[in-house]
Design a protein around this nucleic acid. Structure first.
Length: 264
DNA sequence: CTGGGGAGGGGGCCC
DNA sequence: CGGGCCCCCTCCCCA
């Protein structure tokens, strides 16, 4: 499909339109479409809570005025192309994208080898998802007008847009840090609390982050290392982290159970 | 190594 | 029931 470079401004929805349609998580005084699942309000993070489940606010105000994006407002800051928005090309929606992905080996998690920031700088001219054989590519219909980054859903695009606007909806109530993604805020909070709820079941080493634990486990189990070797490794670590194992027998686990889906 | 940041993707919820 | 949107988890990069 070669539509991406062909559209004029009139053929796209602006980010404002997108935001009006969907809401941007955490624009000050508003929260995402609480009508949609009415999840957390970022501002509610200022209140104390224990992990995770904030009171839901139901603000729905959109915040139009201060995006401060660099495109001067003469053109829409986003190029949004979806079914119906652009009739000439049949753009795939999220499900179709996923279905399409099933046609190929799943490429779990990006990695072009190009640093993300570099990619943004590299792709201002031609959108990245214009491919000769799009059947082999993940369809990403949501294009950022700032960097031409392509995203699979409006949600991912909106999230990405915050990196341009500098907006960080999720504020830490213990320090001045703010985050674009809520999960990053929750992750950050453990810096303050010092908690390391993720524990390796083998060596009982504790981690504050799931990805650290997972990486640890991968390293432990990578490359045909024998069980004995792993055990030896973990035993040595265990001496440095002489904590008692958790009572449960999960392969890993947050000491405070959560709804994560990690399976090792 | 630790912490922050950007992004991919699964799955749940609502319409 | 399916689509759209979103949350959450995970991954990886970088400082």
């Amino acid at each position: 499909m070669k539509w991406a470079g062909l559209l004029g401004c009139e053929a796209v929805l602006s980010s404002m339109a997108l935001m009006q349609a969907n809401g941007i998580p955490g624009q000050k005084k508003m929260m995402s479409p609480l009508g949609q699942g009415q999840r957390d309000n970022p501002e509610s993070h200022h209140s104390h809570h224990s992990h995770g489940h904030q009171p839901h606010h139901h603000g729905h105000q959109l915040h139009h005025s201060h995006m401060g994006h660099p495109s001067n407002g003469s053109c829409p800051p986003l190029l949004i192309r979806k079914d119906g928005d652009y009739h000439a090309s049949r753009m795939m929606d999220e499900k179709s994208i996923q279905a399409n992905q099933n046609m190929q080996p799943k490429k779990k998690h990006k990695k072009s080898g190009i640093p993300n920031k570099m990619k943004e700088k590299m792709e201002p001219i031609m959108p990245p998802m214009v491919m000769e054989d799009d059947s082999l590519k993940v369809q990403k219909n949501f294009i950022c007008d700032h960097c031409y980054g392509a995203y699979r859903s409006s949600y991912h695009l909106k999230r990405h847009m915050l990196t341009h606007t500098g907006e960080k909806p999720y504020a830490c109530d213990s320090c001045e840090m703010r985050f674009i993604q809520r999960y990053h805020l929750d992750r950050h909070k453990r810096v303050h609390s010092g908690e390391k709820p993720y524990q390796c079941d083998r060596c009982h080493q504790n981690f504050s982050r799931t990805d650290r634990l997972l990486r640890h486990r991968r390293l432990c189990t990578a490359g045909g290392v024998s069980k004995e070797e792993i055990q030896a490794c973990c035993d040595s670590r265990a001496s440095a982290y002489p904590q008692d194992p958790p009572s449960h027998t999960a392969t890993w686990s947050p000491l405070q159970p959560s709804n994560n889906r990690l399976t090792v």
